[in-house]
């Protein structure tokens, strides 16, 4: 007989691993990936591949040669950072800029803080914001989508958010909501297909990889807040305006896939809801009154920074805290 192993309880495990969680998120992103290739063609594929390879490479180099640890590429976190970074970029972005974004995401966003689990900010988001500030022109030049990527040489068009920002009521009323739902609208290529993103959301909930708290509180807050500030223009317009706020820009991608990043979001249900509400408010404030048309990245980024504080004050409900006798 073998030597008997002795260890403290429990002697069994759910079987869920970090890698499975990460690959689960990647699977949830497949519909979005397919729709972005359909509308933005080979460019979407190239940007994603470049970002993933660059993230893996930088993670490997830093772990092996700077930290002198065994590389942990297999956990899927670097791949996920690469995919999420790519999905937050315009399809037409030069690939060398993508590589710089990946270096910032992995090198500064993740490894400088101590690697997986220690970073304060979502690495992909850090990479995107770095690129937005460093390369404002390339980062806001959006190719017009067209089926099977016919847009390669097409002129760049305004995004839904640009139109919303200009605030011309007639122009806004002309936006086809259906196009924003299926992804036939301008923007970063991973953020335009609302339906595909929602399919991913349902998958994540079903696999119990994330809970509903963060995405739903963000989406509801954005809807109610933008509805409230436009209600003076009439009910119908306010509804369309609020709807478009949700289906345009990085809102769904951010709410479902970026704000729910385990490491940088709160630990308790109450904390998650507070975090979501604040992201929603900051997003709408930036979108309507800030200098940028899009506020989602900044809102998540700011709230990433507030997460340790939320964790400190939002405690879970303890057993026996409210003793009901009667």
């Amino acid at each position: 007989m073998n030597k008997l192993i002795v260890s403290p309880s429990p002697h069994t495990h759910s079987g869920l691993s970090t890698a499975q969680c990460m690959y689960g998120v990647l699977i949830a992103l497949i519909p979005t990936f397919l729709i972005s290739i359909y509308f933005f063609g080979i460019d979407a594929l190239l940007v994603t591949t470049t970002a993933v390879i660059a993230c893996l490479l930088f993670e490997f180099l830093i772990q092996k040669y700077l930290l002198k640890k065994a590389p942990t590429l297999g956990d899927g976190t670097a791949i996920l950072t690469g995919v999420l970074l790519a999905f937050n970029l315009p399809a037409s972005i030069p690939l060398w800029i993508v590589v710089i974004g990946a270096l910032f995401a992995i090198g500064v966003g993740k490894m400088a803080f101590g690697g997986l689990g220690n970073n304060i900010f979502n690495p992909a988001l850090a990479g995107r914001i770095f690129l937005l500030i460093s390369f404002p022109q390339q980062m806001t030049t959006w190719p017009t989508p067209a089926p099977w990527g016919a847009s390669v040489d097409a002129v760049t068009g305004p995004t839904t958010l640009n139109i919303l920002k200009r605030g011309n009521i007639e122009e806004i009323a002309n936006i086809d909501v259906i196009n924003t739902l299926i992804g036939n609208s301008g923007g970063s290529f991973g953020e335009v297909g609302a339906i595909a993103l929602i399919i991913g959301f349902v998958y994540l909930l079903w696999r119990k990889i994330i809970t509903w708290h963060i995405p739903v509180s963000i989406i509801l807050t954005v809807f109610l807040f933008s509805f409230a500030v436009t209600i003076k223009e009439g009910l119908e317009y306010a509804i369309i305006f609020a709807e478009l706020q949700i289906f345009s820009g990085g809102l769904l991608l951010g709410a479902i896939f970026m704000a729910t990043d385990y490491v940088t979001s709160p630990m308790t249900r109450g904390g998650m809801i507070l975090y979501g509400i604040l992201i929603g408010i900051i997003t709408v404030v930036i979108r309507l009154w800030g200098a940028y048309p899009e506020g989602m990245s900044f809102a998540i980024f700011i709230m990433n920074g507030a997460t340790p504080l939320i964790n400190k004050y939002m405690k879970p409900k303890r057993f026996g805290e409210v003793v009901k006798h009667g």
């Binding site: 970090t18 385990y262 979001s265 308790t268 303890r318």
Partner: peptide, 29 residues
């Protein structure tokens, strides 16, 4: 085959322990 523990990796703050704790504690913390 089922007797060994897996090598631990860094905490990713997924909050699964917080949701699982029947006493409402924060095991990660």
């Amino acid at each position: 085959s089922e007797a060994h523990r897996h090598e631990p990796s860094p905490c990713i703050r997924c909050a699964k322990c917080v949701s699982a704790c029947p006493m409402g504690l924060e095991p990660y913390l």
